[in-house]
Design a protein around this nucleic acid. Structure first.
Length: 418
DNA sequence: TCTGGGGTCCTAGGACCC
DNA sequence: TCTGGGGTCCTAGGACCC
């Protein structure tokens, strides 16, 4: 049996934590650049505010209903996520952290009769320790646990639900609400007369094989109770991306090069946090796809590194080289970014017969990068940075409604008056 | 005026090999 | 007129997730 713990309206719940005055008030959280809605409190959902909707389209509605609007504050949400996850990991040994607000538990070592009681206890513990409300779904496969969670939240509005002896629920769940079945496939499945989770669970596999990829077959099997995917407890990342839209469209080379350098530094931070080296990078730039009146240009250039590295200086140098190759004047650019792939663990580097850097080079680079990190950890991010990042950030994103970083910044600690 | 960012997995098709 | 069979590896693109 598996359990899925999922935080309720996670970002909205975080924003409410240090703002008790927002209890029972509608709250929404915006994506980077204050562009789209990415989280809504229950009260905001009732108003008909959709997930992913562009903010400018519903600004008037928000004003009319006094919706509290926040820019996203990932430092804060990330910290709250860690707190929730550590409560879960302290309570149970087999945990897969699936996303910022979800975790799967493998409950097989617990007698069936105790599973629900354990989940009730966990749910209460999480809300008591962190203030974040969660829902927990229990089922014989991950897909069914996910579905049980959906039923707990959307249908029954209870904190814990076990679908094991209540499979009749499958016939009440639309095919598009099943984990792994998105827009395109649910359309295709409907054309075949498959409209509910029950339909998909009971279809003959050979019929599915002719029409769909293995992913759909796997989902069908999981719905019928056959485990196709176990717990993935070891986080081995396969790519790292850092990219952001510009606050305003950019036409000149220099600010874009500074943005790419800054994204490269962020990607490099993530790389080093996980003790990885990168073998392959690609840099991309894009114009604004919504501005059909302007000429469009999207391009990316890949660069295979001479040897895997985590040295920010050489990574930035290569990233700028890629950008120079593809930058064309005369366009209004909206976004730039960088992607690292071919990630390998620092402990398992394959040496190269021709391009192996000397031990001395590796040692020097590591010394420099660790001092660099130590300074930034002590005095704050960006205290030390490459000149390539520039100083004034004319390209920086909009984030006008950001809440304080209550739990990660001394100057932002909440004040309590008695 | 204003439209996110960061991931995974799978498949088809091309280039190459013997 | 007729033109093999069996592989691997890489990349782009499309689907999905939160």
């Amino acid at each position: 049996m598996y359990a899925l713990v999922d935080c309720n309206n996670f970002y909205a719940s975080c924003e409410r934590l240090f703002r008790p005055d927002l209890q029972n008030k509608p709250i929404i959280v915006l994506s980077n650049n204050d562009g789209c809605i990415i989280a809504r409190s229950g009260e905001a959902k009732v108003l008909g505010i959709g997930m992913g909707e562009p903010f400018f389209k519903i600004k008037a509605l928000c004003k009319q209903h006094q919706v509290h609007v926040f820019s996203s504050n990932y430092t804060f949400y990330g910290d709250m996520s860690q707190r929730v996850m550590s409560v879960i990991e302290d309570s149970w040994p087999n945990v897969e952290i699936y996303s910022i607000d979800e975790a799967f538990l493998d409950l097989k070592s617990l007698p069936a009769s105790q599973q629900e009681a354990f989940c009730h206890g966990l749910e209460q513990k999480i809300v008591r320790y962190t203030g974040i409300p969660v829902s927990i779904g229990i089922g014989p496969t991950k897909t069914l646990a996910k579905l049980a969670n959906h039923i707990a939240k959307k249908e029954l509005k209870i904190p814990v639900f076990n679908i094991d002896n209540q499979r009749f629920w499958l016939s009440r769940i639309a095919i598009g609400d099943v984990w792994g079945i998105g827009r395109q496939w649910s359309k295709k499945l409907s054309q075949q007369g498959i409209n509910t989770a029950f339909d998909l669970a009971s279809i003959e596999l050979c019929r599915l094989k002719q029409l769909f990829y293995v992913m759909v077959q796997r989902t069908a099997l999981e719905l019928s109770g056959v485990v196709c995917a176990g717990l993935d407890e070891f986080d081995s990342r396969k790519s790292i991306i850092a990219s952001k839209s510009f606050g305003q469209m950019q036409t000149a080379y220099t600010p874009i090069a500074q943005a790419v350098s800054s994204h490269c530094a962020r990607a490099c931070e993530k790389l080093r946090e996980q003790n990885l080296l990168v073998g392959h990078m690609s840099v991309f730039i894009q114009t604004n796809r919504f501005r059909l009146d302007l000429p469009q240009y999207n391009y990316s250039i890949a660069y295979k590194l001479e040897y895997p590295t985590d040295d920010l200086r050489s990574l930035t140098h290569r990233a700028k080289f890629c950008l120079r190759q593809m930058f064309r004047p005369g366009f209004h650019y909206q976004k730039a970014g960088i992607c690292f792939t071919d990630l390998i663990s620092k402990e398992q580097v394959q040496m190269d017969l021709f391009n192996q850097p000397s031990d001395e080079q590796i040692k020097q680079s590591e010394q420099l990068m660790s001092v660099w990190e130590a300074i930034n950890n002590k005095y704050g991010r960006h205290t030390l940075r490459l000149a390539a990042e520039g100083r004034g950030k004319s390209w920086e994103m909009r984030s006008e409604l950001r809440s304080p970083s209550y739990t990660t910044k001394w100057s932002d600690l909440p004040l309590v008056r008695l």
